[in-house]
């Protein structure tokens, strides 16, 4: 078991997503530190992929900017080593199966352990294919995080029973990106998860405002925000960290206010 559970011991969790190397590694380092200082409970670090099929236009843009800026998997591990000099909260990677596979699954996952990465979110690795990386994750104590989607229905129990770290509840159909409204009946999905698992549930996809974060956190254990943060990076580039810090603070305050369990 990793340290991920600690992210959920401080009330409802706020989980920001940042694409490594967008637009450069210095900005990523500053942005992550700003998020940590302003109350982030867990950091989701994206390793860019050339063809991110689960992402909407905003995160696709971040991937391309980062790759253009010369980021590589090795540079991402160096970046994590730098962060780990002072960042104590859990951190997970979000990337695509080919990035892990191509690096060599065992080499990648053992590097995760060495550098201090607690978990992996791989959107194109569903339950049926998790054996691809799971044995190495278990060997090195890195959690392979499972996702549950609005279409999961009869699959929820199966996924939840074997889930590790936290469960990533995908709020809506489609790809990542901010949404004005989240229509899925998440309460029902989360109830069904709770019957089968004790691990925390965090909701992601489409969340951008404090009101949405508060609402999502009130029915789960935390809120994950990606595209809204990437938009700040898109707008302010290497000056983004101060704005990210401010945004994270607002969102963490909103999540903290949410009651319920």
């Amino acid at each position: 078991m990793s340290n991920i559970h600690k992210a959920f011991e401080n009330g409802k969790a706020f989980i920001p997503f940042i694409t490594c190397g967008d637009p450069d590694t210095e900005t990523t380092l500053k942005s992550v530190r700003a998020a940590v200082e302003n109350g982030a409970d867990l950091i989701e670090l994206g390793i860019p992929f050339s063809d991110p099929t689960a992402e909407g236009p905003v995160i696709q843009g971040a991937n391309l900017r980062a790759l253009k800026g010369g980021i590589t998997t090795d540079k991402v591990f160096s970046l994590v080593e730098d962060l780990r000099r002072d960042v104590k909260i859990p951190m997970v990677f979000m990337t695509y199966a080919n990035v892990v596979f191509s690096y060599g699954a065992e080499k990648f996952i053992s590097r995760c352990k060495e550098t201090g990465i607690d978990g992996l979110i791989i959107p194109d690795l569903p339950f049926e294919e998790k054996e691809e990386f799971l044995p190495f994750c278990h060997q090195y104590g890195v959690d392979l995080i499972s996702m549950i989607a609005p279409t999961s229905e009869n699959r929820i129990a199966m996924i939840a029973r074997e889930a590790e770290g936290f469960l990533y509840i995908v709020s809506s159909l489609g790809v990542t990106g901010t949404r004005s409204e989240i229509k899925t009946d998440l309460t029902k999905i989360i109830e069904s998860v709770r019957k089968n698992s004790k691990i925390p549930c965090a909701v992601g996809f489409g969340i951008s405002t404090p009101e949405q974060a508060k609402k999502m956190a009130s029915i789960s254990d935390g809120a994950i925000v990606g595209s809204a943060i990437i938009k700040i990076l898109e707008k302010y580039g290497s000056d983004a960290s101060a704005y990210i810090g401010e945004y994270v603070k607002t969102m963490k305050d909103a999540v903290r206010e949410s009651l319920g369990k």
Partner: peptide, 12 residues
């Protein structure tokens, strides 16, 4: 081969 796709598409 295999099925390396998002959970959203699995039931489809």
């Amino acid at each position: 081969g295999g099925q390396y796709i998002t959970e959203t598409l699995m039931n489809a």
